[in-house]
Design a protein around this nucleic acid. Structure first.
Lengths: 238, 238
DNA sequence: AAGACAAACTTGTATATACAAGACTTTTTT
DNA sequence: AAAAAAGTCTTGTATATACAAGTTTGTCTT
């Protein structure tokens, strides 16, 4: 852990809201009182509260205080940058990952554009099928530049690539641009997924960036439509 | 406009990035230099930069500076809380809104749960079809509590309800929880939309909240799948 | 020439103060 | 009793200072 005061305060309050120790609809202590409780200045408390506000935990009202929001309804955030493993774990479902492909390729035009790569770059291509409760629901196609990820094994892909990147390689994901569209299933979709007669697949295209704003990964996640759900919290920008 | 310094600075820089005056990949002036330029303290500059960072305009890198990101790709944010009218305008398409229903109803159980209403409340039900380039693409079902919106006319619904609320009634939208799922079209969908043989509709369920965290509106937006696109920028929470 | 070190940048965190503005309670005036 | 005013809470904005920590650049030593 870092010795980061306002993040620690944020975590503490967020945990209390998540666990239900602080109930939706109630008010938090005032900024002044929180400052005393956590032995921090008001500005530090405000940074923590702003984080809570951004992530949908509280609503600040001028002159009144910070109202706790009902976070239970947006329980599992397919929204954020959470990984499949974390997600399946949270939902308490039996899940399995089948690695269909894992090799280095030369990027074509489309991929070079997505990954901002040159013709000299080598790209990891990982194709995985996600099985939940015995049904093959999701087809994930991941592309990494070998520049960031020198080696990759079947075992890592079956577990969690993200854990490997963060813990082993020390790579830090910073932000992502997502695009959601619906298309007809390709032959590849039909081959790998249990489509059960569905005529569409939901495609989540994901561009993932590192701390230094360099693009790191491009992912296509192809879902059977009945098992797809996306939840999102958004503040009015301005 | 408010006399709000850090928002003004945010707007100024955001506009420059949007218009291309500041190019992606370049660096902004340092916080110190920006402080001189805008005659503001460093903390004020930092508030503006944090807003830019949250909205995907820049990436801050410790020790280096603020790198300008490429916002051109996430041009039209179906993500935010932007309205259909604004959206259609930005895309430069010919659009039309057909009001199919507009009346007060007594809420059933489902609606009471969504709108946090009592059996005594009266609810505005607005059903609108959105036509783009001559095709009926979207079916919007809006529900407002009469408590917030006393009167509503066909003309307002054909224009922009949001503009009416913000400008005429002085109601301020604060945040929204979105949920995206895919389902089979209902008879109502088939009746109102030009489905062209598509077997699914994309449903965007939207819970809209006011400044004081009270729920204000529930919306179901039902899209023909080929015309649906959702773009989203998300930072790794923590 | 190569490496080590130092200096000068950058952003990040924490604190303090002052005042503005909205919400609410209490007191005073009418 | 009702209305107005004052006082006291709350959060919002703007500023200043100090130091920590990461990056880059230049200089000095080896």
């Amino acid at each position: 852990m870092k010795n980061n005061k306002f993040v620690a305060i944020y975590q503490d309050i967020a945990d209390q809201i998540q666990s239900g120790a602080i109930k939706p609809g109630t008010k938090l202590l005032s900024e002044h009182e929180l400052g005393e409780k956590y032995d921090a200045s008001r500005e530090t408390i405000r940074k923590a509260l702003n984080l809570l506000s951004q992530n949908g935990y509280i609503q600040k009202v001028r002159g009144k205080g910070s109202i706790v929001l009902d976070v239970s309804k947006l329980n599992f955030p397919v929204s954020g940058l959470i990984s499949f493993k974390e997600l399946a774990g949270k939902m308490g479902k039996k899940s399995r990952t089948i690695v269909e492909e894992l090799h280095l390729i030369k990027p074509d035009d489309y991929l070079r554009a997505q990954l901002n790569a040159t013709t000299k770059d080598e790209i990891w291509k990982v194709v995985r099928v996600r099985e939940i409760d015995g049904e093959k629901i999701i087809l994930d196609k991941d592309f990494f530049n070998k520049r960031w990820v020198p080696s990759l094994t079947k075992e890592i892909c079956e577990d969690s690539i993200y854990e490997y990147l963060e813990n082993e390689l020390g790579i830090h994901i910073s932000f992502a641009k997502k695009e959601i569209i619906v298309e007809e299933p390709t032959e590849e979709d039909k081959k790998h997924l249990d489509l059960e007669g569905f005529h569409n697949v939901v495609i989540v295209k994901n561009h993932v960036y590192l701390d230094d704003a360099s693009i790191f990964q491009y992912t296509e996640s192809r879902h059977r439509p009945d098992k797809f759900r996306f939840v999102n919290f958004a503040r009015r920008s301005l």
